[in-house]
């Protein structure tokens, strides 16, 4: 007998006392909780997102479509970035013509090469207001998971209000489980020293979020 059969056999013997559930799963497990906490207009939801992002030390900016390239260039300049990493499908209008050297991400770029890039600019798939969370799903405007991880400075553009949801349940409804997902809530942090939160460990130590709308 192989271990698969052994383990499944042990499970079945262990559950000899259990009457199998015949109802569909969603009936068998009632969900007496809220889809979202509180009633908010679309604008208020964006405000809550901004507030919660800032609470976990992300730096939040707002811009209209016309202002975006200038803002991105200013943030890159303020960070002193000489090179900026760009996912393959970043909307062309998000960056100005001048500014730091653009490194277009491709599979051949090694992790060591990515480590020498100062900043990265990406979009996102969805943002969650209640928790101050950005979710990236590897779409062309976001790129591979590693590009929003290795550079020390991440600029993430959120289209508001379209990409913003109130809650975790609403975010999961929008996301595709088949894609590789990264949920980001503030810059990297740790609570490992005396259970106190300190920002800045292995992921980007500076997270800037631009609410575009």
């Amino acid at each position: 007998m192989n271990s698969r059969e052994r383990i499944l056999g042990r499970v079945r013997r262990a559950l000899a006392d259990v009457t199998p559930e015949t109802r569909p799963y969603e009936e068998a497990v009632p969900r007496d909780y809220l889809r979202a906490h509180g009633e908010r207009t679309a604008g208020e939801t964006v405000d809550l997102l901004a507030e919660n992002l800032a609470d976990y030390r992300a730096i939040v900016h707002r811009a209209g479509a016309g202002e975006l390239p200038a803002l991105v260039m200013r943030l890159l300049a303020e960070h002193g970035s000489r090179e900026v990493l760009v996912p393959p499908g970043l909307p062309p209008g998000w960056l100005a013509e001048d500014g730091p050297v653009r490194i277009h991400d491709r599979a051949a770029l090694t992790a060591a090469r990515l480590d020498r890039v100062d900043s990265v600019v990406t979009g996102c798939a969805v943002a969650i207001a209640e928790t101050g969370t950005l979710v990236l799903d590897g779409s062309p405007d976001q790129g591979r998971r590693r590009i929003s991880l290795i550079p020390d400075h991440h600029i993430c553009v959120v289209r508001v209000p379209d990409q913003v949801v109130s809650s975790v349940p609403q975010a999961l409804e929008r996301l595709d489980a088949a894609r590789p997902l990264t949920w980001i809530s503030g810059p990297s942090a740790t609570s490992d020293i005396e259970l106190d939160r300190v920002e800045g460990v292995h992921g980007p130590r500076t997270l800037e979020v631009i609410l575009l709308g």
Binding site: Y56, T131, T133, R144, R146, P180, W183, S185, A189
Partner: peptide, 27 residues
């Protein structure tokens, strides 16, 4: 919703990764 608030007492932990099998050219 319940895990981050119970463990590190955060609304959400800084990073959550979700992956399904393997993805071409990513990971």
């Amino acid at each position: 919703q319940t895990l981050p608030r119970s463990s590190t007492a955060e609304r959400m932990n800084p990073y959550t990764s979700m992956w399904t099998g393997t993805t071409d050219e990513d990971g």
